[in-house]
Design a protein around this nucleic acid. Sequence first.
DNA 1: ACATAAAATGTAATCGTTTACTTTACATAT
DNA 2: ATATGTAAAGTAAACGATTACATTTTATGT
Lengths: 331, 331
Amino acid sequence: MSDVAKLANVSTATVSRVLRKPETVKKATQEKVFYAIQQLDYQPNMLARHFRTNKTKSIMVVVPSLTNLVFAAMIDGIDEVATAAGYQVIFGNTKQNTGKAREYVAHLKQKQVDGIILMTVRLEQEAWAEIANRYPIVLASDALVGLKVPTVSTTNIEGAYEAVCHLIQLGHKKIAHVAGLPEIAVSRERAKGYRLALEENGITFDPALYLEGEYSIEVGRKSMKKLMSQSPKPTAVFFGNDEMAIGGIKAAKELGMRVPEDVAVIGFDDIKFAEVMDPPLTTVAQPLHEMGKKAMEILLTLMNGQKTDQDVYTIKSEFKIRDSCGAYLKN
Amino acid sequence: MSDVAKLANVSTATVSRVLRKPETVKKATQEKVFYAIQQLDYQPNMLARHFRTNKTKSIMVVVPSLTNLVFAAMIDGIDEVATAAGYQVIFGNTKQNTGKAREYVAHLKQKQVDGIILMTVRLEQEAWAEIANRYPIVLASDALVGLKVPTVSTTNIEGAYEAVCHLIQLGHKKIAHVAGLPEIAVSRERAKGYRLALEENGITFDPALYLEGEYSIEVGRKSMKKLMSQSPKPTAVFFGNDEMAIGGIKAAKELGMRVPEDVAVIGFDDIKFAEVMDPPLTTVAQPLHEMGKKAMEILLTLMNGQKTDQDVYTIKSEFKIRDSCGAYLKN
DNA sequence: ACATAAAATGTAATCGTTTACTTTACATAT
DNA sequence: ATATGTAAAGTAAACGATTACATTTTATGT
């Protein structure tokens, strides 16, 4: 920078100002400086800048898995807003490892990132609330119930409720639910919507028709097989997410059953492969991109030192009726 | 840090040494310092450290899209090695924007990251080679032919060759190929394998059976429809990647055709949904996780100031025969 | 032309580590 | 007890930008 200053015949302060607050520098001087910058191919040392300003202009996204389309889509939304605001996005991959997430908070304390967006929270909920009180943190997708941490989520309960009601309207009485792990709030909410729908329609909850497991193709597959090996068999299965549902459909086919004729299936998320399945998967679409964008927007205001006006921002899910639920079956 | 030094009755230099080169400090002193650190809940300011050492211990991964399972799996491998080596992973999303990638190189020059892994390169190949000459850069998946940039890739030509040969052995003569965009090296290589297989088996290349487009479900779908709207129709289609193949199968079904009876389909990548498709997709599996790990390992040696012993590291692909190619059809 | 205010630029301290160099403490040999 | 060598700890400069404050230049009004 001092080289630039020398060449342009100004002080380093002026060079800095040209770069950071051009409006305080005369046009003619700016040109001199820019010319010198170009001549020398000067690149500002960001490390020095970050050090001096005590900001990194980067945020961390903590995800449980990178190879999950749901998180990928959300990150895409985050990235869009972050980039526009001049922020970098850094990854924190917890790999289902509970402790790992808290480790990443050290980055925050060590000034490595200006804020964090968390995509899954397990256990130690109070600890998170406390951390969120001191640092800019936003929860996306998952939620900390009752705690004052800014959160972006979708209408999980309502979405699940709508899906199950739809199955009931189609005449199903024995509707199973394969839920995600109960330590994830999202799983609990969707299960709640499921039970609510049953209740309101006078169907008694049958524990035999309720399974739990990790959100994955494999668990979906095994769950379907388990459900079909017992009696009474369900005539419809509402899966906690699309990957599970896809595994479930696969299993049904392996068992020689037809979907939706022998068993109706509904998923949750609307990942890009849902529509292209055979049969096309009926699902509750999460506005993932929007959620990511919103989460980043909230984080920006937080990092800006402002308070948020709400704790929970809910973005509506959309029920997408396709073939796997049997709504389009001609009887 | 000076607070810690004061409390432990040592100099800041010693505190720093305890943290960075403990072997040069007496055990007793170390304990004093650690105690002080704990008492004060001291967190080293990473910005200062990075500034002073001129290293960030972070690398950037430049991807064309985040919502692509191929890149996600590769990043997963990168992340594994990076985390183990104490590096952070930062994202650069080009969103198919050619210029964007070069923009990210500025991060390198500005010391924001210590190295870069590029997942797609388009145009301006020489410019990249020059940059790679000055900074630690590794190419993953895509390649710069003939240029000395360390590259990790899979056996695209051989994999495609094997797949197409397999179709030929099954009796197919009119085999179409839906390739990725030609500005991507991977697309060109797979197309090359396709042509090689035809050639070696005495089948003349038919331009009408060769389409190009972006790697996506939608393009796969449209391409299949286009292929089936002309004559002669192909009896088999080798798609440049799985997403395309999945779109292609979808389209075939929409046209009332059966896969593989009416048209055999093969993809490339082996994303996690390939096996669960109906019919299960025959595909050439890329060792994505391995490729990511290897790329990061090479980058580590590069950032360590060492030279690489090879320019191109090729990891074998694996041909996975499932149902969509018709090999398991009982005639 | 001059006083005064405003705009533009310069000066130099500062951020929190690391580390080359220096000093001190300690062990060993004579 | 003293010299010598090594290990441990201290001193202080340095990294490269930003910015409060001081100074100079320019603009404005009379």
